[in-house]
């Protein structure tokens, strides 16, 4: 019992420290730039592109897809950046030398990003709904909210996998950029997955977001939880698999980084 309490204390402290020490946007200017301007202009860009190509009646399709993809901004960028920043600021060797439970430390990296991801989607969606006058009166809003939470968790799972690579890779943020924008192509954000070549469709369904976005679109059309439960369960399962894979990789690469002294390379 005492051990569990200690682990919880490490978990909570780690979340707090991550929030106060590692987030580059925790200033008014940084927040406006990276948490308001960037997400909102990303949604607007793709909604305008979609409206130009397919007509105004499809604005909600693009708005919803791109708003939900923003969870990846927090879940993938945020998680990868925390590991990359530990390296950049020279604190990675200290983290790896600490006796703290690795799983607890590892998962705590994702929590603030999950919360941030939810906030980003809400802000992005509200602005888009106002700007484009989108009609959500038929939407099942509680279910849509649940989809947002689930997607935020699952994209953080993917972020944990790539964050692990940051233990041995100096330019992990580049990887984050590539993964983030690849999700725009393969997860059915701006066009149906069925338009992709077969191999990419397989990739698509092995990633978070794909099922979650599909479920959210159905929720926006008024579907009940029973109609999208399969999609949400699949989304959660995929996210869990990526997180577990990420943890396993973290342990392997941690050992590799220790042997090669890679954690200090910058």
């Amino acid at each position: 019992m005492r051990r569990l309490a200690l682990e919880v204390a490490v978990f909570v402290r780690s979340i707090w420290l991550q929030y106060v020490a590692l987030f580059q946007w925790a200033t008014i200017n940084g927040y406006i730039a990276y948490k308001l301007l960037l997400p909102v202009t990303q949604i607007l860009f793709f909604v305008e592109l979609g409206v130009y190509a397919t007509g105004r009646q499809n604005a909600l399709y693009f708005a919803l897809g791109n708003a939900l993809q923003l969870t990846a901004n927090a879940g993938i960028f945020g998680v990868i950046a925390t590991v990359a920043n530990e390296r950049q600021y020279g604190t990675l060797p200290l983290l790896l030398a600490s006796p703290a439970n690795r799983l607890v430390t590892f998962l705590s990296r994702a929590i603030v990003n999950v919360i941030d991801g939810i906030a980003t989607v809400v802000v992005g969606l509200v602005i888009t709904v106002i700007l484009f006058g989108l009609d959500l009166h038929r939407a099942n809003l509680p279910l849509l909210g649940l989809c947002v939470v689930v997607i935020s968790l699952t994209t953080a799972g993917l972020g944990l996998m790539f964050g692990s690579i940051g233990l041995v890779m100096r330019d992990a943020i580049i990887l984050a950029n590539v993964v983030y924008y690849l999700l725009l192509i393969v997860c059915g954000i701006n066009f149906p997955v069925s338009r992709l070549p077969f191999v990419l469709q397989l990739v698509s369904y092995s990633l978070p977001l794909t099922r979650g976005v599909q479920a959210a679109r159905e929720a926006a059309a008024g579907a009940s939880i029973g109609q999208v439960s399969g999609l949400l369960a699949g989304e959660l399962m995929i996210g869990l698999l990526w997180a577990l894979g990420g943890y396993a990789l973290f342990r392997i690469l941690e050992s590799w980084a220790r042997r090669g002294g890679l954690q200090e390379a910058y």
Binding site: A33, T41, L49
Partner: peptide, 22 residues
């Protein structure tokens, strides 16, 4: 902060300059 602001507004420039749609 000017750089982070412009970085944040990068896609806004794509929109206003008509890079991918008129």
């Amino acid at each position: 902060w000017a750089f982070s602001m412009l970085n944040g507004f990068e896609l806004g420039v794509y929109i206003l300059c008509g890079f991918m749609f008129p």
